[in-house]
Amino acid sequence: MSSNALGLIETKGYVAAVAAADAMVKAANVTIVAREEVGDGLVTVVIVGDVGAVKAATDAGAEAVNQVGELVSQHVIPRPHLELSKFFKVGESA
């Protein structure tokens, strides 16, 4: 699977993160590569996939979080640099 984009959704609360992750993988052809918890209830779900798929997935994820909990932020990085995966646990993007 070509994965040339990175999608991140950060929520406040674990349940919201689970809801987001579920909505994302159901909405488009993407793979979950990481779950980051930085404390204070902030959970980030990281997905990879094609740019269009990742955009659609994060949109669906945001919609789902809207119903369940609190969306802190979301971001899509098309073609993330290889350097990124050295220091962030965001999965390889090659």
Binding site: K55, A56, T58, D59, L71, S73, Q74, V76
Partner: peptide, 9 residues
């Protein structure tokens, strides 16, 4: 308020 990438497009 957070605006998703797709929404911005």
């Amino acid at each position: 308020v957070v605006v998703t990438s797709l929404a911005r497009d």
